[in-house]
């Protein structure tokens, strides 16, 4: 806290400012501030052509660029979030996020093909309440794992969950970590392949359950990955955090992921892995 309160807000802070104009013609890169023609950005899979910054990708777009064209079938279990704790503001937050994202929750599950190989897929979407895991996300992830076992297909889980376990559902959310992990353990016992793809950001309870336990773990460049958030760590240790800390490249160096893969190479890398495990 400074000695003087700033009463007027006429002085604008300098520094990076994100300009995200989804329906405009141009997007300014979050990282290097380069103006990118939207059509070029889409063609480049929402990766900055200048600095290689990987923008968020919604679940539908993610599935589109990862799976074989038109091969995806969503599992429609029709489950929606409740408000079991009657948590202040939760219902409003849910409906706001539904409107904002056009999604009914923070995860999408289904099956499809990658390089003609059948696969079950689950994706969490950071834009929906930070991709946090409450009852519905936990249930959907568990259901898709069980589907993989039923069909004896490999499983791909793509995480973008900065929120970790969703606080508005309290310990019920925390227990989704145990639930999904138990399902992952069953899947492994069945000898089925589980590939985890980590995208920006994957933290907390999602990272500390299914996301960090793939047989093979891929990560997108620059993705923030870890257990505790950088702000919490900074508060605890009262020190600056080193540059690049908790980024995918740092995890690669410390042995936390198998590969850091650029978005344009993810599909081909998945095909190589899937091919290896095919009999």
């Amino acid at each position: 806290m400074g000695w003087f309160e700033r009463t007027y807000n006429r002085i604008k802070k300098k520094g990076k400012k994100t300009i995200d104009i989804p329906h405009g013609l141009w997007t300014k890169c979050t990282n290097c501030s380069q103006l990118i023609y939207n059509k070029n950005l889409e063609e480049n899979l929402r990766v900055c052509p200048k600095c290689n910054y990987h923008f968020y990708l919604g679940v539908r777009e993610r599935i589109e660029i990862t799976l074989d064209k038109n091969s995806f079938n969503e599992y429609n279990f029709k489950i929606n979030s409740d408000d079991p704790l009657n948590f202040p503001g939760y219902k409003e937050k849910l409906s706001k996020n539904e409107k904002k994202t056009g999604l009914d929750e923070g995860a999408l599950i289904g099956e499809g093909k990658i390089g003609k190989i059948p696969i079950t897929v689950g994706v969490t979407d950071f834009r929906f309440m930070g991709g946090s895991m409450g009852s519905v996300v936990g249930e959907k992830i568990t259901l898709v794992i069980e589907k993989a076992m039923e069909k004896r297909h490999p499983l791909l889980l793509i995480s973008g969950s900065g929120g970790g376990a969703r606080m508005q559902e309290g310990v019920i959310s925390l227990m989704q970590m145990a639930k999904t992990s138990a399902a992952v353990a069953e899947l492994k016992k069945e000898g089925l392949l589980y590939i985890s793809l980590l995208t920006h950001p994957t933290m907390g309870g999602v990272m500390a359950s299914f996301a960090s336990r793939g047989d093979i773990i891929l990560a997108e460049p620059g993705a923030l990955l870890g257990f505790a958030g950088p702000r919490v760590i900074k508060q605890t240790i009262k020190q600056q955090i080193p540059k690049g800390f908790q980024q995918a490249e740092s995890l690669l160096k410390h042995g936390g992921v198998d590969l850091v893969v650029e978005r344009s190479k993810i599909r081909s890398t998945l095909i190589r892995i899937l091919d290896f495990t095919l009999s």
């Binding site: 970590m177 257990f227 955090i241 800390f245």
Partner: peptide
């Protein structure tokens, strides 16, 4: 809670917890 520190992260805090959840379930 689990310790939120630099070294804890570098040595895989999330993975260590997740591995236990799987192990304990089995």
């Amino acid at each position: 809670g689990a310790y939120p520190g630099i070294e804890a992260e570098e040595r895989g805090q999330a993975e260590a917890i997740a591995a236990n959840l799987e192990r304990m379930s089995q």
